[in-house]
Structure formats: structure tokens, C-alpha cells
Design a protein around this nucleic acid. Structure first.
Length: 437
RNA sequence: GCGGUCAUAGCUCAGUUGGUUAGAGCACAAGAUUGUGAAUCUUGGGGUCGCGGGUUCGAGUCCCGUUGGCCGCCCCA
């Protein structure tokens, strides 16, 4: 038994695992490119203060934080948002708007690992800065959908729940709650799906009770699942603010529908997101079966960049995790089986023939084809077996007879046919074979 | 941080009321087989039975602790 293990919640990527990870990353990167997002990267290690400023001192319990040799308080990054806010904030006045950026990076959180949730994981992050209108939400939610649909997932497999913290605050204010009460209630709503009525215990303890008619009003708002129901619910409090907000909602839903993505979107006011810094639209992606935790989450955070000490810059963004995405793709049979098959496998008679084969092997590789061959002298029978098992389409046979004649035997491993070609034509023969197939 | 549950070969697992030197299949390697394909047969390497302690003449098996995995709670950027 091995003496050393990887740390809890950390993964090791054997070649097959890395092939799956790369498949996910490749699709994300390609999709973000088609949406006109530019890729960036940033340090893995950051000053601890960056996260405390953004999320409060309590966050330290969830961080991989420590003191470095220069006595600096540092932390491995638990998320990208503060970092990207710094990058954008530092050059806020020099960057062309809208700023559309994405990254694929590893993050670290000191928490108990569970299904779909590890201590080290990758996220695709996408953000739009400098656009206060709902057009940014359309663009980002469309990107989110395509980052999952690109794997072959459909509206049967996952959906995006869309909600709005601004509307919640308007509504709760109209019901007579102050700001502190409203924030506590949003926390309760966030937990309600899991805990039921117990979710309101914290509020009752803090503010000494919740009348049943007000609680019913909150629950009713939370159960809203359509735009019609939403506009009906806020109609009694109609005002300029609310009608403008409703217009934003129409814009987002109409825009996504015009892109053909209507089936992926579900109005769902029970989504509020745990974090306090979200300021408007918030959204989360889930699998339809509902046996996985969230696939992705995001929303608008217009005040955060200013809070970190930079110019006032509106922002909206989301992140998709690699763990849950991978689980869903496995569940739906959408994770391809990756085999590292060579294009060509060389069968080599003996040490004398090896030199001749080496010349061709290198030339064919230089021409861009994947070539493999046995490193040691092996019986012919074994080599043919190895050639078949390798998954190569073509075998090149360098036996004593062929080398003496100045030819190489080319065997089509699928058709089980073979012919001899002049050694000088070996590269051209391989190229022709693969350009024709 | 809390609770439940599990841990035997690279993988899946068997291992009797505690009893000799811990097994099988798959995988890997060698041979049968020095010129043609996923077969077959033979053979081999691989285990401090997660780790530490205890009970016992004797522990993979029973007890305690610990580490790790999985599931749930807290949290979820």
C-alpha cells in the first residue's frame, strides 16, 4: 500500500482522466471564443485580505490560507471574482467596453468534500464589465447555456433558473421589512428548498417573529414561476422603478427566446444566491433530474469593484464547475471514450531493419502523424497483435525481405489488406491514406 | 466542525464460530509462437489485509483509537 496519498479532496489526473478534463476545457474555451470573450489568467496565490474585504472575516475558515516566509497572510484562490475585479478595476478606464472576459482555472476551498464538491476543482468563469443593462445578462446566460449544450446536453437535461434580488428587495420593502430584515429573509429563502419552515428560524430569533400573512406573502413570491405571475404579484405596488424592472425582465426573456433558448430558462424566484454582494439578476443551472448540486451559478454584482477600491463599474458573471459537469456528462453517456490511438504502428523485423524503420518513423512523425512502434525486439505475432490493439489504422511492416527490396509493406488494419510501396514513398502513402479517409 | 457508513492485489470481490504459508476473476508481464490480429493453454510479478494499539496460545476476522473514501448536516463565492 502506498505510503503517500494525495490530500483529501484533491484529484490526480491519470491520462484517461486528463483526457476527459481536457475535453471539457476545450469545449468551454471554444464556446467562449465564439461569443467573443477573451481569455485571461491570474495568480493562484493572493493576499488573504482580498477575500476578507470581499466576503468578510468569516470566510477565512473556508480558505486554504497561511503565512508565507515573508510573513504575509496569503490564501489560495477560492474563486476568481475578486481577482478579475482587481484586473479589470486597475485598468478600468483604459479597457474598451464592453469588457467580455473568461478564464479556466483551479480553485481551492477548505471544506468537507462531498459528491460534486471537492477541495480543489476547476471553474470556467465568464464576466461582462461595463454594461449595466440586461443585454449583458442575455449574453452571459446564452453563453452559460451553450457551455453545457455544447456537449450535447439538451433542455431535457438541464435548465437555468432566473431570479432577481432587486425585485426581492423592492417587494420586501413594500411589505414593510427594513434592509437588515430583508437580507435575513433572503438567507431563509435560499435555505427553504432544503430545510422547509425551519429556514425561517434564524429570522424569528433575530427579529422576534413573522406574522403569518407576511410569511405567506414571502412564500407566495418565492413560488413564482412565470413572468405573468411576477407582474401580477408586483402590480399592487406599481411604480416607475418596478415597471422599469419588469421591462428588463421582458428584455432578458425575449432575447433568450429569440436565440432559441427559451426552453432552457425557468423563471424561479426561489433562487436568491447565498452571497450578499449580488445586486440584480441571479441565476443557477441545474440538471433536470435534480440529483446533482448546482452546475453553475452567477449574477450581477454592480457594487463589488467599487468596494474593492476601484472605479464604479457594473458587472455580471457566472462560473461553471468541472466536477458536476463531468458527473452529468458521465450520467448521460456524453463523455466520449478517449483512446490515445496512434495513426500508424510499425512492425519491425529485427535490429537490422530497425534502422531503416527509424528513418521513416521520424519522417512520418515530422509530417504530423502519430506513429508508434515496439521499443524492444518482439516476435512478429506479438507485434501484429500490438498493432491491432493500439487502435492504429495502418501498420507499416519492416521485415528483412522488405528492407532488402527497398520497400515497406503497408497493411490496412481495418480492411486487412496489404500492399508494398517503395520506401521513398512511405510518407506520401501515409498522407494519402489519411487524407482520403 | 458534527453524524452515519465503509476500508483485503492496479480494479471487482471471496475469506466459515478467531486456527497452518490470505485466494479468485479481470488487468499487467513472460512463454507456447523469428512473418500476420482481440482466441487458447502454461507460467510469473505483485498484499506490512489502510495505519496504530489492545484482547488472545493464536487476529484479515473481536475491541479501542486514528487516517482516508462515500453519504448527510453546517457552508456553498
Amino acid at each position: 500500500m502506498a505510503t503517500f496519498q494525495s490530500l483529501p479532496g484533491f484529484r490526480e489526473f491519470y491520462p484517461e482522466d486528463l483526457a476527459r478534463r481536457n475535453h471539457i476545457f476545450r469545449r468551454w474555451r471554444q464556446t467562449a471564443g465564439t461569443f467573443g470573450f477573451a481569455e485571461y489568467d491570474a495568480p493562484v496565490l493572493e493576499p488573504l485580505e482580498l477575500y476578507k474585504t470581499k466576503s468578510g472575516d468569516e470566510i477565512e475558515a473556508q480558505l486554504f490560507s497561511f503565512k508565507d516566509k515573508g510573513d504575509r497572510e496569503v490564501s489560495l484562490r477560492p474563486e476568481m471574482t475578486p481577482t478579475v475585479c482587481r484586473l479589470v478595476g486597475a485598468k478600468a478606464n483604459a479597457l474598451k467596453r464592453p469588457i467580455k472576459w473568461f478564464s479556466i482555472a483551479e480553485f481551492y476551498r477548505y471544506e468537507r468534500a462531498q459528491k460534486g464538491r471537492l477541495r480543489a476543482f476547476y471553474q470556467f468563469n465568464a464576466d461582462i464589465f461595463g454594461e449595466p443593462g440586461p443585454e449583458a445578462e442575455i449574453e452571459l446566460i446564452a453563453l452559460l447555456v451553450q457551455c453545457l449544450a455544447g456537449f450535447g446536453l439538451t433542455a431535457e437535461d438541464f435548465y437555468v433558473r432566473l431570479s432577481d434580488r432587486d425585485l426581492w428587495f423592492f417587494y420586501l420593502e413594500a411589505l414593510g421589512f427594513d434592509d437588515a430584515q430583508a437580507r435575513e429573509l433572503l438567507g431563509a429563502i435560499d435555505r427553504f428548498e432544503k430545510m422547509g419552515d425551519d429556514a425561517f428560524k434564524g429570522y424569528v430569533e433575530k427579529f422576534g417573529g413573522l406574522t403569518s400573512d407576511k410569511k405567506d406573502a414571502v412564500l407566495a413570491f418565492m413560488k413564482i414561476r412565470s413572468l405573468d405571475a411576477l407582474s401580477a404579484a408586483i402590480a399592487p405596488f406599481a411604480g416607475e422603478k418596478l415597471s422599469a424592472r419588469l421591462a428588463d425582465w421582458c428584455k432578458v426573456l425575449d432575447g433568450l427566446a429569440a436565440m432559441g433558448l427559451g426552453d432552457f430558462i425557468q423563471v424561479d424566484l426561489s433562487v436568491v444566491r447565498g452571497l450578499a454582494y449580488y445586486t440584480g439578476f441571479v441565476f443557477e443551472a441545474f440538471d433536470r433530474k435534480g440529483d446533482l448540486r448546482a452546475l453553475a451559478g452567477g449574477g450581477r454584482y454592480n457594487d463589488l469593484i467599487k468596494k474593492l477600491g476601484y472605479p464604479d463599474l457594473p458587472a455580471v458573471g457566472f462560473a461553471i464547475g468541472d466536477v458536476t459537469t463531468g458527473l452529468l456528462l458521465e450520467q448521460r453517456g456524453l463523455m466520449p471514450n478517449f483512446v490515445q490511438a496512434p495513426d500508424v504502428y510499425c512492425v519491425i523485423g529485427g535490429e537490422k531493419e530497425r534502422a531503416a524503420a527509424f528513418g521513416d518513423i521520424h519522417a512520418i512523425r515530422a509530417a504530423g502523424f502519430r506513429v508508434d512502434y515496439p521499443l524492444k525486439e518482439v516476435a512478429f505475432g506479438k507485434q501484429f497483435k500490438a498493432a491491432a490493439e493500439s487502435g492504429a489504422k495502418l501498420a507499416l511492416i519492416y521485415g528483412a525481405d522488405e528492407v532488402a527490396k527497398g520497400v515497406v509493406k503497408v497493411r490496412d488494419l481495418t480492411e486487412r489488406t496489404e500492399r508494398e510501396v517503395a520506401r521513398a514513398d512511405a510518407v506520401a502513402t501515409v498522407r494519402d491514406f489519411f487524407s482520403g479517409s
